[in-house]
Structures are given as C-alpha cells and as structure tokens.
Design a protein around this nucleic acid. Sequence first.
RNA 1: UCAGUCGGCCGGACGGCCGCUCCGGCAAGCACCGAAAGGUCGUUCGGAGAGGAAAGUCCGGGCUCCAUUGGCAUACGGUGCCGGAUAACAUCCGGCGGGGGCAACCCCAGGGAAAGUGCCACAGAGAACGAACCGCUUCCCCGCCCGAAAGGGAGGGACAGCAAGGGUGAAAAGGUGCGGUAAGAGCGCACCGCGGCUCCGGCAACGGAUCCGGCAUGGUAAACCCCACCGGGAGCAAGACCGAAUAGGGACGGCCACGGGGCCAGUUCGCGAAAGCGACAACGGCCGCGGGAGCAUUGUCAGGCUCGCCGUCCGGGUAGGUUGCAGGAUGUCGCGUGCAAGCGCGACACAAGAGGAAUGGCCGUCGCGUAUCGCGCGCGUCGCAAGGCGCGUGCGGUGCCCUACAGAACCCGGCUUACAGGCCGGCUGAUGCU
Length: 118
Amino acid sequence: MERLRQRVDFLAVADGARVAAPAFTLQSRRRDDAGPVRVGFTVTKKNGTATERNRIRRRLRELVRRLDVMALRPHSDYVLIGRRAALSRDFNTMLDDLGNALGRLDRQNAKQDTSARR
RNA sequence: UCAGUCGGCCGGACGGCCGCUCCGGCAAGCACCGAAAGGUCGUUCGGAGAGGAAAGUCCGGGCUCCAUUGGCAUACGGUGCCGGAUAACAUCCGGCGGGGGCAACCCCAGGGAAAGUGCCACAGAGAACGAACCGCUUCCCCGCCCGAAAGGGAGGGACAGCAAGGGUGAAAAGGUGCGGUAAGAGCGCACCGCGGCUCCGGCAACGGAUCCGGCAUGGUAAACCCCACCGGGAGCAAGACCGAAUAGGGACGGCCACGGGGCCAGUUCGCGAAAGCGACAACGGCCGCGGGAGCAUUGUCAGGCUCGCCGUCCGGGUAGGUUGCAGGAUGUCGCGUGCAAGCGCGACACAAGAGGAAUGGCCGUCGCGUAUCGCGCGCGUCGCAAGGCGCGUGCGGUGCCCUACAGAACCCGGCUUACAGGCCGGCUGAUGCU
C-alpha cells in the first residue's frame, strides 16, 4: 500500500464515487493498471488549526493501517477527506464506519459499471 | 502570615503492543543480484526525531538572484534624550528628564514651536498685532439726607484710570505673601517658577551654584514642515543541476511519388445498374504576345498548389527528480573581564530535516488538579451535657479532567500575541511573635 502524493492523482479520484461518514468522506477510483493500492488524505483548513488538522490526518491514517487489506480493491486509489468529528469520535466506532463506507462504495461502483455498460 | 512587585524555570513521568520519517551499516543474520570479488532507495538490527512560543510575519541580518556597477543629491519610506552592546535592529543594557505609586517598582512617539505655514470646536467680553461683560476707583456734574458751618453719607450720570474679585473654558499672558495705591498693577521686595551669562561636576543627556533680567516668545510637530542619521529591488515557490512522454524548432541521412491531410477548382452536364467513357470550363498551371505593367482566351492541361514519411543527432524546455538543507553570529560547562547588555579564552557536544508534508495510534500504572463522601486530629463558637455548626489539615474511596496555547517548512537575533497547571528566588509594605 502506498501513499497518494501527486496533485493530479487527487484530482482524478475526486471525480469518482464518494460516500460520507460522520468523521470523513471516502472517495475511490479504479486505475486499471498493475500498481498497488494507494491511499491519500485531505484535510482542509476549515477543519481547524494546523495542530488539529494533523491530528485528524493521523487518526485517519491509523484507521487505514488497522483495516484488513482485503477490504480494499486492488489497483485502486482511495482518498479520505477528514472532518472535524474525527478529532473526538471513538476510534473503534470510526473503524466500523470505514468498513461500512467501503462496502457502500463497492455497491455504488458496481451500479455505475452496469449503467455504463448499458 | 497576608498583600504586592520584579526576575527565572518547567510545561506530565514510566511501561506494553502496533506503526512513520531520516541517518548509520554489513560487524552479524535473512532476502535478492552476481561465476566470484562484491553489491542493494531492501529487511532484521543500531541511532535520532517539534516549541516556549515552532504562531503572527511586525522589525533586523545571513544567504541567493536581478539592477547599478563612480559617489552624491532629489523624491519616497523609516528612526528620533545621552552613552554603550551587537552582524544588524524599531532590540537589549546602563544613565538622564517627565509622570504615577506609602514603597519595591511601573509608564513615556522623550529632537526642533524666537525658520515659516496651518489649526485651537463649544462656552466665553476676550483664544494671540492682548481683551473689558459683571465689576473696582479719584476728580467733575445732578438732585436727596444729616449738620449752624466745615464736612460727611447713600444714589444716578459723564470723562478717565484699573485688571484685584466674579463668570466661561483643557488653556485667560507667571504663582503665593507683604508693601504700595484713589483703585490697581512685577510698580517694589522675598520665596518659587521662567530666561540668560559665567563657574563647577559629568564622555554626554543633564545636574548644581553665584549673579543678572521684572518676565520679553500659549498649545499642537501620532498637522505640514525643519534638522540629524539610515535605507537599491525581490525572495528558498530565491537560485543551481538533471530532465520523461507529447507537441513544436534546427541539422544530417534515407524513402516514396504509393497513400493521407488542408486549400482552390467539378456540389457541372450527357450516357450507364456500376466501373467507366465523353463533353465543357477559371480568378489555376503551361504556351503565345509585349521592355514592362499587362494583354489575349481564337491555344493547351482535369486536375493544380501545399503539408511530406522514416531514422539519427542537437539545443530550448514542461511534469518530475536532485541540490540549496542542517557544523552554526551553534549549544552546555568552566575561567577571566565588565555595574550590566555582552565580550574573550578553554574544554566538551553534534542536537529533526518532512515535502498532499514523518515525529503517531490504542492502552495500562503513577502523579498533579478539582468535586464529593467517610474517618481521624487541631482551633473557634453555641450548649449543663450528649452533641451541633464553621474553618484548617491528614489518610482512604469514587467521579471528572486524564491536560492549556499550540505543529518545524532555508537559517539566525528580536518584538508582539496565546497559554491549563506548577516550581524557585530577590525586593517592598502591613501585621504578629521572640
């Protein structure tokens, strides 16, 4: 698993499907290449001071690390957009949130694929 | 003990599991490459990893590029008591002056108002070539009262004198007292204030003393301005190096007029199912004529013009990468020196280096604080007593907070702002005890 770092990659994912949770918004995009799963984090300035933004990003990063790798689709990019609730929300609860969000994202992608085929 | 004031410091500790970034390194193990020697953006391993403000980006520097490349002046901006410290500063230290506080101590944008210009609202008579509203006063005039008279008293008026008192204001042209006068006035005197010469102390800001001047010039320069001093601009997204794909530029070589794109002409007419055949045609080509502009369509051509394609090399340059980028006006300790800021010498140490941005996540134990409950002790008070109430303190339990402000982004020196809780020291005042 790699980190997403280039601006163009973030912009590409921003066009993909998205799912909202109390502490974050999850986006993803299938890349159609042989590369590994990549995950990026976005925390905008409206979420608070630099210290608070750092904390949000670190907790989200830890969520992804704890996650079962099998829950992520291979050859895909994911972006987690942090929200202020990520500062105080219970860690295990957020872990469940992320699992649910991934499931919903998969269903949404499947629906988009079938409609694209038609 | 309480109240105050100034300065300095800390800003959770330990541990468990799982991670991140950078550095070191094969000395050892593993993985991979290699025939081997050996090697690796590898892994296990070893080491390091946010702040007192990292913040605001308000000053000052280093560094880099650009400009000027002689300096100066003008303009613009900044600084503004004196001396010192410093790479430099609007910072710091030591003084001076003014203001506040019983004091320790604190505050001050603190050059020039006899270079010039402007402004000074409201109130008030008057706000800057001094003014007279109420008022005070001598002489004179008018009538009245007392008196025998001389004269005296109260009132009114005119000419003058005055600025003490009243009133306005942030401010009214020195202040207080005595003398003086018709009433008054620096008119005179004393003290204070102000200005000036001289002398003394101090590097200086400035302070002190004698004498002189009766006092002549109100405030505002965070109004213009004057004077002195300082300042070229932009910033690490600076700058340097490397440099993919695609498009485009240049050079050389090869290939083919096959196919394709663009523009013009044919989006024409006849025959034909179609392929095709034929006809006619220019603002096009060729030919003709003319020295030329051009002319002629009665000549001729159904296509004409243009871009090529492939390979190699070169230079510019985007994304991106590397560097700048962590050994420095560096820190700690000691000694010397200076009232101090600091400076000098010596020893030791190396202490984050990210880049959609590492330094974390989840827990445990302890500690701190606070709330509450229980028990014990001390003091005060009420009560005959049992005991009640209040305050302080110790131990234990439980809950909460499990921490405030806040995250390096080229690096330093400052300033400013934010900050839970806590520690240490100096000094001042008040009170108590010896």
